[in-house]
Simulated scan of single mutants.
Amino acid sequence: MAISTEPPPVRTPARATPTAPPRSAGARDRTFGFLLAAPALALFLVVAVYPLVAGLVTSFYDQSLVRPERRYVGLANYTAVWPDFVDRLGTTLVFSGLATVFPLAVGLGLAVLLNARLRGRGLLRGALMLPWLLPGVVVSFLWAWIFNDSYGVLNHLLAGAGLPEVDFLGRPATAMAAVVVAKTWNSFPWVMVVALAALQSLPREQLEAAALDGATRLQRFRHVSMPHLAGPVALVAMLEFIYNFGSFDMIFVMTGGGPGTSTMTLAVSLYRYAFTEFSLGRAAAMGVLWLISLSVVCAAYFLLDKRLESR
């Protein structure tokens, strides 16, 4: 029997078909997160980005609410509204500054008062929150009635005291003051809440140690409480200033920007361009300039916030 000396044939193993690598958990999470954020992103694009781009484009056209066609005019709208913008910006800064300082002072003072041990301070805190809960339009009509020169409560009290009546909303010297008073009454509660929360988070040991060292109440407030309040109060002040910079309802309801232009802020001026003169192009140009100035204020807020966080 013949014996074969040839080696047995070697079988080459079949190559495995390459398959796509499985998706990592991180990729699936990113896709799922994008799907969750997609509706909010679409809403943001429709509500915020599209009007912003449309307004920017409209600012370069002569466009009106009373005629369908529009004509490209370049920077003519910006040139036309620039003098008004400078004047309205000054009025807006005055209103924003006054409507920030006075609520800050009133809210901080009430926070210090309510932080003390008083009878019924819980009820008092709740009552002082009422102006903040009311809508701005309601507050505006309330104070317009109080300051009315014909049947207002304030003039009735002045007449009862034998003093001359004052047309608060009809005089340039008093119209801005009247609006600031109304805004102060509407805004001081949230300043009070933030300041009171900061005071109540202050460790009692620090105040007790200062008292043992012989510090008076004023010294304890100045050297212990105020440094603890500085951060929250500064941020509240900046946020209030930004909100007042775009305030419209209170000024429009109480004075309509008058008398004359004494209370004509950027918001009211933009409204008049759009819905009194029907000039959408000039209103859009005013809005773009307003946005740029507000961006500067917001940038200052973020810088302040970053500086306070780094401390």
Rank of each mutant, 00 (worst) to 15 (best):
A159F: 10
P21N: 07
A105I: 15
G256L: 08
A161D: 08
L52C: 13
V194N: 00
L36S: 10
L36R: 10
A16C: 04
E208S: 12
D149C: 00
A195F: 03
W143Q: 04
E277K: 09
R23I: 11
F95A: 01
P21H: 06
T92E: 05
A16F: 08
G126V: 09
A37T: 08
K183D: 06
R217Y: 11
E69S: 14
G97E: 04
W143I: 03
Q219K: 09
H223F: 14
V138P: 04
L89M: 12
L123I: 13
V137P: 06
L124C: 05
R88W: 10
V101G: 01
S295P: 00
R282F: 02
G258I: 01
P103V: 11
Q63V: 11
A300H: 03
V101F: 05
G246M: 07
I3Q: 12
L89K: 03
Y50F: 14
S310T: 13
A299Y: 13
A48G: 05
S150G: 05
G74Q: 05
L218P: 00
F275A: 06
T12G: 03
T31K: 06
V224E: 04
N186L: 12
F32H: 07
Y301E: 06
T5A: 14
L123V: 15
L110K: 09
A198E: 03
A159Q: 14
E309K: 13
V53G: 04
C298N: 09
G107V: 00
A175D: 03
A14Y: 04
M176Q: 09
L239M: 13
M286C: 08
R311P: 02
L270P: 00
P203H: 07
F302S: 00
R70K: 13
V193T: 08
A274F: 05
A299R: 10
M226K: 02
L270I: 12
G122L: 11
P9K: 11
L41H: 03
D213V: 03
I3G: 02
V296G: 12
L123A: 15
T19W: 08
M226N: 01
G287F: 03
A80C: 05
D213Q: 07
Y72E: 12
L93R: 04
L56I: 10
R282N: 10
T12H: 09
T255P: 01
T91M: 12
L108Q: 00
G246P: 00
A211L: 05
G74L: 08
V191D: 00
L163C: 04
I3C: 07
L75D: 04
G287N: 06
A177W: 10
V10I: 13
F188T: 02
G136H: 04
G109T: 09
R11V: 14
R220F: 07
A105E: 01
V106Q: 03
V81A: 01
N155W: 01
G152H: 09
N148A: 13
